[in-house]
Design a protein around this nucleic acid. Sequence first.
DNA 1: GCTTGACCTTCCAATGGTGGGAAGGTGTAT
DNA 2: ATACACCTTCCCACCATTGGAAGGTCAAGC
Lengths: 133, 133
Amino acid sequence: MNIGAAAEEAGVSAKMIRHYEAIGLLRPALRRDNRYRDYGDREVHELRFIGRARRLGFSIEEIRTLLALWRDDARPSRDVRRVAQAHLQDLESRIAEMQAMAGSLRELVAHCHGDSRPDCPILDGLGAARENG
Amino acid sequence: MNIGAAAEEAGVSAKMIRHYEAIGLLRPALRRDNRYRDYGDREVHELRFIGRARRLGFSIEEIRTLLALWRDDARPSRDVRRVAQAHLQDLESRIAEMQAMAGSLRELVAHCHGDSRPDCPILDGLGAARENG
DNA sequence: GCTTGACCTTCCAATGGTGGGAAGGTGTAT
DNA sequence: ATACACCTTCCCACCATTGGAAGGTCAAGC
């Protein structure tokens, strides 16, 4: 199976597959006589794992850890849970940050009449002398 | 006022101030005989504006637009509002995406007993054959 | 006057994850 | 043979920020 087909099946771009191999996330793919990379079900399965983890926001380094655990039949689920929970907390704190941003912004937008007049609470808020306003 | 002091006052790193100047977000600072950049209240005020906008998640290009509007006494507040609202919607959709991630992840974490046993719904979820699981 | 240390200057590189594209090889169908 | 779709490696760009090297400047203390 060529890289394009594997990419299609796994939901990861061919570009990224090569990249994952280059940074050592994946073992170098087998090559045909062509020098074309050759993928089987096992590799596609791994790629799908990576794709899904990326879509859940895990970093490459986190995925490196998760893949190692995945391959290890004797891993304690505790280790997996720790990685996932740390990432979840990271996600949650980033969400909270962005919600704070959105909240302030909504406030500013709500008070701006948004017509042809120049006075604008949004610009006033950004230019204000005090940091909390 | 040297760049360090201006950075301190405005809540933006000196490194970034130079960068903002290099990319044309800020007009080149006046220089002393030293060749040191020299900042006054007006410039610090602008830097503070930029810092606040960055903290609200506006991109450099958005800030470029906002700064131009800020400097233009005759801007229609409509234009400002449009920029802010577009950014707000962008923020909101990114928040929604991340909340979806966090939700799936919470689900997985909740079902993982997290002890010394190897079976783990988190890994099962990431490795699953189906995409929606 | 000379040293020390805290500033400042410019320039180059790295981060993370992904995409774009060049330049060239390969496979397959007409 | 020709066209086209795929593959290969390689380098570059994005965005915003940080780090560091190599060197200039200033103020304080001895």
